[in-house]
Design a protein around this nucleic acid. Structure first.
Lengths: 182, 182
DNA sequence: GGATACATGTAAGATGTTACATGATTGT
DNA sequence: ACAATCATGTAACATCTTACATGTATCC
């Protein structure tokens, strides 16, 4: 009962929308610039088998014609996925796993009411701002040396987090504004 | 003679500045918010052994007192590291490995003349802009569904790349301006 | 009939995580 | 004396990459 990898959650989210085969997933991962996961069969098929073994996915037989196994969520799988969706962003995730946070947020809107997404963004903003303060406190970072490019690379990190903070503000406003309806 | 992982390059870059032990590296990775690599002994020590086995690092004996093995670059290690530094940012790296690109840039300034960093930024800008066009062409991404949060998460990705593009412009200007001296 | 896309897999290997283990040295 | 920190390791495990392997359906 260990927790899935980022790829695992992406699969759970996708097959929760519609039945998909391993091949479908490979196509999605290779043709979608959004969140890129490996489209290699050596990653997808073992991941599907793991998720099925844990009881989160159920396979559907080919049903004649071309060989093709599609997967969907079991009730337990959906519970597991929703539990993940409902987790508030943590500091650790902000520091090193922004991609995984964005993946979660992307799936959040279709499985939970808008209020969840709003609270997600509020927690995210808090953590990002707090991390930005740490970065400012840090400034000239040891390790990368006092070189010009080291300082500039540091600035790039700061700018990236500032962009996320600004986005979170805008996104929250958009959700709150249109929130009553969806 | 395979190429090092991101952790491997980070180690090569750091021990290229001064002799460092595995423990030193762990401290740098755990107390530095810059680029976070694992500070776990299970990652560091095997990585050091690999780099040494490839002939890129040389270990120095403890020299009395407390047991402590420090590492430095061999000439081959420096060549390998510089060859990595000189690589222009590629499309693939921009799409999925911005962290690794920033690591490279951070080390670039102390080992190569400023002109290299300027060209690095120019190539980076090109690739980022081209990727942004692709994203725009994409818009409502299949896979994440047409949910509100899916679209917003997509926007976050766009905003993040825009922040990098703006940073690259500023950074290039800063380098060109102060460039004659350093 | 041959190329192309569909569809799934396996095997070997690298890398990293978590947890455990060991001992030396320094500070109080 | 004791705790904390220094310092290095190993073992088990999961995950992912790369490369190879196999066969089917469809289109022209």
């Amino acid at each position: 009962m260990r927790s899935p990898s980022a790829l695992g959650y992406a699969i759970l989210g996708l097959v929760g929308q519609e039945l998909l085969s391993g091949y479908d997933l490979r196509k999605i991962f290779s043709h979608t610039p959004f969140d890129h996961f490996s489209d290699s069969p050596g990653a997808i098929y073992p991941a599907l088998r793991r998720l099925e073994r844990e009881g989160w996915l159920k396979a559907s037989a080919p049903l004649g014609g071309r060989r093709r196994t599609t997967y969907g969520l079991t009730p337990a799988g959906r519970r597991r996925f929703v539990a993940w969706l409902e987790q508030r962003p943590t500091r650790d995730e902000v520091v090193g796993n922004m991609d995984s946070l964005m993946l979660r947020f992307a799936f959040l809107g279709e499985a939970r009411p808008v209020a969840y997404a709003v609270r997600f963004l509020e927690a995210l903003s808090r953590e990002v701002r707090s991390h930005l303060e740490d970065l400012r406190r840090f400034r000239q970072s040891p390790g990368v040396g006092p070189s010009v490019t080291g300082a500039l690379a540091f600035d790039a990190g700061v700018a990236s987090y500032q962009a996320y903070a600004a986005w979170a503000r805008r996104a929250r406003a958009a959700l709150v504004k249109g929130g009553g309806r969806r």
